[in-house]
Design a protein around this nucleic acid. Structure first.
Length: 649
DNA sequence: CAATAAGGTATTTTT
DNA sequence: TACCTTATTG
C-alpha cells in the first residue's frame, strides 16, 4: 500500500524527522498512517499526539482519514488543529497568567485594519497625510518580529514602533487578541511560565507539523518550544511550494531544519509524466531549494496545450470553449475543471465568458457554464452578519470597542458620528472603556450636551445590551438570539434601509441562517458558549451551511494560484501567463522571482491529466488596453512537452 | 447629516 | 474598468 519512502516516514517515529513531500506524493496519507502507527504499533496514547496544520480544511481532512483508519474513538483523542485553533485552546485556559481575562475576543484582519487606521490617524494628528496601509502593516509585522532591536532611526521606523506599541495596549484594553497575538501570547505564556510549558510538553510528546514550509518565525518558535523536551518533531512540507513568503513564512525553516533523518517523497500519484516533466523543469531553475524530482508511472499523457489570444476577452472565450469541449468530449464534470490565475482581477473576463457562452444540452440551447469563484465574499463578511456578530461580541465582551462602535447606531438610533467621536476621545483620555462611558450617559451621570437625540439612542442601546447579557446567560443561545433580533427590530431596520426587494429578502435570509448556525453549533457542542461560537467563526471554521457547501457543487472552479495549493483537478487552466502578472511586477522586489516560480509550479502540479496555459497579447489594465509579453516561465518548459494551438478551436 | 461627485487606486490572504 | 475613500453640497 505504502511505497518504500512513505513506509520509512511512517516508521520513523522518534527524534526529528523531515519529510520532503513533493506535490501529490501522498503527504496526508503518510501523516495519517504515521499517527496510526504511533498509536497501534508503538503504543503511544492518542492523547499525546499533536498535529498542527495551517488550514481548518487540512485539519478536518486529517481527522476524517484518521477516523476511517483507526476508528473514531481513538482518532478523536488526538489533537489535530490549526496553529491558531491550538493557541486559542491553550489561551482560553491559561491566558489569566498573562493578565487577560478568558472572555477575550479574537480580532480578524478587518477589525485590526480599522483599529490600525484609527490609531495611525491619532498618532499623526489630523494634518499629516496618512501613509497607505500596506507599508504600515508591513512595518508593524516587522516591529512584531524584531522585538525591540534598536534600529529605529528612520521616520517610518519610529512611527511604526510607536504604532505597534499603541496597537498592543489598545488590544489589551479591548480584551482582544489578533491572529498574530494568538501565537505570540502563547509563546510568551510558555516562556514566562515554564510550569505551563512543561505541562504541555508532557501532554504532547509527539508533534507533527504539516506544510512546514509555510511556518513563520513565531510558529517555528512555538513548535520548537513544545518539542524541546522530548525531541519528537516531525515536519512535513515542500520547499518548492512555499508561496507565502510575503506573509512572513520563512522557507529557511524547511531548508535548514535540523533533522535526525530526512525522507523525500518523490513518487507522484496525481499527474501525468508530461505534466511532471514540465513542473520539474520549471522548478529546477530555483537555486534555493532541496533537490527533488517528481516522477509518476504510466504513459506520458496529453501534451500541455498552450495558446495566446489577441485580447484578454478572447483568451477568456477560448478558455470557456475548451471547458465545453472537455465537458462534452472527455465527459468531465464541471467541478473537475479549474481556472487558475495570479490575481483576482483576472477573474472578471473569465466569469463573463463563462456566463455568456452558449451550448447545447440535451438538444436545447443553453447559455452559461456553472462556475464558482473561490474566495468571493465570505458569508461571514456580509454586512448584516457582521452586525449581528458585533452584537454577540459586545454581549460576550463589552470592552470590544471595534464591535461596539459598529453597532451603537445600528439600527439607526440617532447617535451621530460626531457624538461618537467626542465620546471616543473622552474615553481614551480618561482611560476608561467606551462601554462604561455609554453607561454613564445612559444613567445621566455624564451630560450629553447638545446631543439630545444621541443620548436617547445610547440609552436604548445600553439597556438593550444589558438585558441581552442577562438573556444570553441562560441557554439555549439560539433562543436568546431570536429574542435579540425581535428586541432590536432588526427585520424592520433591514426593511427600512435596504432599497431593493431582492436584497432585503436575501439579507433577512442570511440573518435566519445565522440563527440556524448558532442552533446547530449548540446541538453539536459539548459545552457551548457564545464566545466559543464567535471564536470558531473568527478562526475560519465553517459555521455556516453556505461555507460548508463550498467547492462541493458541480461547478467550474475559479481561484487564484495561492488558493489552489493543496487541491487537484483533472483539468487545469492557468491563464494570464504574462510578464508582470506571473511573475507579478510587484513581487519582484519583495519576495523575488523564485517565489513566483514556485507559484507557477504549484499551478502546474494541480493538474492530473490536462493542463492548458494561456496568455493575452493585450490586456486591459486600469481601463486601458496594454500590450503584454509572454511570461518568462513559459520558456522554461521544454518545447517537446508543449502543444501550441490557436486560441480558436 | 445624508446623498452625491470626484479622485485615487488596484498581488497573493491558510488563520 | 470598478471599487472604495474623501470632499462637497443641499
Amino acid at each position: 500500500m505504502l511505497n518504500p519512502a512513505q513506509e520509512q516516514a511512517v516508521r520513523s517515529t522518534e527524534g526529528r524527522l523531515l519529510v520532503l513531500a513533493g506535490a501529490g506524493s501522498g503527504k496526508t496519507r503518510v501523516i495519517v498512517h504515521r499517527i496510526a502507527h504511533l498509536i497501534r504499533e508503538k503504543g503511544v496514547s492518542p492523547l499525546s499526539i499533536l498535529g498542527l496544520t495551517f488550514t481548518n480544511k487540512a485539519a478536518a481532512e486529517m481527522r476524517e482519514r484518521l477516523e476511517s483508519l483507526i476508528g473514531s474513538a481513538e482518532a478523536r483523542q488526538t489533537t489535530l488543529s490549526t496553529f491558531h485553533s491550538f493557541c486559542m485552546q491553550v489561551l482560553r485556559k491559561e491566558i489569566g497568567r498573562l493578565g487577560y481575562t478568558r472572555d477575550f475576543t479574537l480580532y480578524d484582519e478587518r477589525d485590526l485594519e480599522r483599529l490600525i487606521k484609527q490609531l495611525a490617524r491619532d498618532l499623526l494628528g489630523h494634518d499629516g497625510e496618512l501613509p497607505s496601509l500596506a507599508p504600515t502593516r508591513a512595518a508593524l509585522s516587522d516591529a512584531a518580529n524584531k522585538t525591540a532591536s534598536g534600529e529605529d532611526h528612520t521616520w517610518h521606523d519610529k512611527f511604526s514602533k510607536e504604532l505597534f506599541g499603541r496597537l498592543q495596549s489598545t488590544l489589551r484594553a479591548y480584551n482582544a487578541v489578533s491572529f498574530d497575538n494568538l501565537i505570540h501570547l502563547t509563546i510568551r505564556l510558555f516562556e514566562e511560565h515554564p510550569d505551563v510549558l512543561d505541562r504541555y510538553q508532557e501532554r504532547f510528546r509527539y508533534l507533527m507539523i504539516d506544510e512546514y514550509q509555510d511556518t513563520n518565525p513565531a510558529q517555528f518558535r512555538l513548535a520548537e518550544l513544545l518539542a524541546q523536551k522530548y525531541g519528537n518533531l516531525c515536519v512535513v512540507g515542500d520547499d518548492d511550494q512555499s508561496i507565502y513568503g510575503w506573509r512572513g513564512a520563512e522557507v529557511n525553516h524547511i531548508l535548514h531544519f535540523k533533522a535526525d533523518r530526512t525522507i523525500k517523497l518523490e513518487q507522484n500519484y496525481r499527474s501525468t509524466p508530461s505534466i511532471l516533466d514540465a513542473a520539474n523543469a520549471v522548478i529546477a531553475r530555483n537555486k534555493n531549494r532541496h533537490d527533488k524530482k517528481l516522477w509518476s508511472e504510466g504513459r506520458p499523457g496529453e501534451p500541455i496545450e498552450v495558446f495566446n489570444a489577441p485580447t484578454d476577452a478572447e483568451e477568456a472565450e477560448a478558455v470557456a470553449a475548451r471547458i465545453l469541449r472537455f465537458h462534452e468530449k472527455e465527459k468531465l464534470k464541471w467541478r473537475d475543471i479549474a481556472i487558475l490565475y495570479r490575481s483576482n482581477a483576472l477573474s472578471r473576463s473569465l466569469e463573463l465568458a463563462l456566463m455568456q457562452i452558449a451550448w447545447q444540452k440535451e438538444g436545447h440551447w443553453v447559455r452559461g457554464i456553472p462556475y464558482e469563484v473561490f474566495g468571493g465574499l465570505e458569508f461571514s463578511e456580509r454586512s448584516e452578519i457582521k452586525d449581528l456578530f458585533a452584537y454577540l461580541r459586545v454581549i460576550a465582551n463589552e470592552k470590544d470597542e471595534e464591535a461596539l462602535l459598529r453597532i451603537v447606531n445600528v439600527p439607526r438610533r440617532g447617535v451621530s458620528d460626531s457624538f461618537l467621536d467626542e465620546l471616543t476621545q473622552e474615553n481614551r483620555s480618561r482611560k476608561i472603556p467606551l462601554w462604561n462611558l455609554l453607561e454613564e450617559i445612559a444613567s445621566g451621570k455624564r451630560d450629553a450636551g447638545s446631543h439630545v437625540r444621541g443620548a436617547a439612542g445610547v440609552r436604548t442601546f445600553v439597556s438593550l445590551i444589558e438585558s441581552a447579557k442577562k438573556r444570553f446567560a441562560t441557554p439555549p443561545l439560539a433562543d436568546s438570539l431570536r429574542w435579540l433580533l425581535e428586541e432590536m427590530q432588526y427585520k424592520k431596520a433591514i426593511e427600512e434601509e435596504v432599497k431593493s426587494d431582492k436584497m432585503r429578502l436575501f439579507k433577512w435570509e442570511n440573518v435566519e441562517e445565522c440563527v440556524n448556525a448558532l442552533a446547530q453549533y449548540e446541538a453539536g457542542s459539548e459545552e457551548p458558549s457564545l464566545m466559543d461560537f464567535i471564536s470558531n467563526s473568527a478562526l475560519g471554521k465553517p459555521v455556516f451551511p453556505a461555507e460548508k457547501k463550498k467547492g462541493h457543487e458541480d461547478k467550474v472552479q475559479l481561484m487564484t494560484l495561492h488558493s489552489a495549493k493543496g487541491l487537484e483537478f483533472p483539468a487545469c487552466f492557468i491563464v494570464g501567463l504574462e510578464d508582470h502578472i506571473l511573475p507579478h511586477e510587484k513581487s519582484m522586489a519583495e519576495t523575488g522571482v523564485e517565489e513566483e516560480r514556485r507559484l507557477f509550479y504549484v499551478g502546474i502540479t494541480r493538474a492530473r491529466k490536462w493542463l492548458t496555459l494561456s496568455m493575452a497579447r493585450s490586456r486591459m489594465r486600469m481601463g486601458k488596453a496594454q500590450p503584454t509579453n509572454p511570461s518568462r516561465f513559459l520558456f522554461e518548459i521544454p518545447k517537446h512537452l508543449l502543444n501550441p494551438t490557436g486560441h480558436k478551436i
